[in-house]
């Protein structure tokens, strides 16, 4: 579903590359944790998949297509196939829960009838039944993140990228979010989650890819976060 072929990304020619010859393959329907300290290259990975940046060297394939060959006018179509969730939720503060999720369908031209039918289903999937008309500021952090997840999956993307989705949440709430992400994964969506929340990684027992200084240093099929002091220092 996602394949990195010797990908190097350098933002500034003098500094160390953000990603250094990374080769990695994520299969359809997998759940992958991307772990590592801040600055290890997790966010760069996500940006490259979305074609927000282009790789300095190497090739990034998403759904079998080399993103470097996608013309700029086709990039929106690429992004429709990918849902994204962030640490800071990024909801529209002046729109209701329903409108926030509906927004993602409106801007790609879905009809009103389809929106009215789909949005409540998706809100139920993330556990927000009956909160259609709430405003974001009336919700808890966990609920806001659920709205963001609902918005990310409402157009049924094949891939869900989550960049530290639990970074602003307490452990109990975080576990709730993980349950939602796991459910989405069970439904067939490939999930890549960047995190440095060791409890979550250790509990979920999914594939763990560890980045350090822009390189993949570990790729375990059912990994843990790793207590190794060297990893923390890196």
């Amino acid at each position: 579903m996602i394949r990195f072929d010797n990908v190097t990304k350098t933002y500034d020619s003098k500094s160390q590359p953000a990603l250094d010859s990374v080769s990695l393959e994520v299969d359809r329907g997998e759940f992958v944790f991307l772990v590592g300290a801040s600055g290890s290259g997790k966010s760069t990975f996500i940006r490259l998949v979305l074609k927000e940046d282009r790789a300095t060297r190497g090739a990034v394939y998403v759904a079998g297509q080399n993103v470097a060959n996608i013309p700029s006018w086709r990039v929106p179509r690429l992004r429709r196939g990918i849902g994204v969730v962030f640490q800071d939720f990024r909801l529209l503060p002046n729109k209701t829960v329903f409108a926030n999720v509906a927004f993602a369908m409106q801007v790609i031209g879905r009809s009103r009838a389809v929106i009215r039918e789909t949005v409540p289903d998706v809100l139920a999937t993330v556990g927000l039944e009956g909160k259609n008309d709430r405003m974001p500021h009336e919700l808890s952090g966990g609920e806001q993140q659920r709205v963001a997840i609902a918005r990310a999956i409402v157009n049924r993307p094949g891939i869900l990228l989550a960049d530290e989705p639990t970074g602003n949440l307490d452990p109990t709430t975080s576990m709730g979010i993980m349950k939602v992400l796991d459910k989405i994964n069970q439904n067939g969506t490939t999930v890549v989650m960047a995190t440095h929340d060791d409890d979550i990684v250790d509990t979920m027992r999914k594939r763990v890819v560890e980045l350090r200084g822009g390189s993949v240093v570990r790729d375990d099929a059912q990994g843990i976060y790793v207590g190794d002091a060297g990893a923390m220092a890196g």
Partner: peptide
């Protein structure tokens, strides 16, 4: 904020 979200969910250039 709106345009950022529009890009993420794949709104076309024209719509943005």
């Amino acid at each position: 904020r709106e345009t950022g979200i529009m890009r993420l969910v794949g709104a076309s250039k024209a719509v943005i």
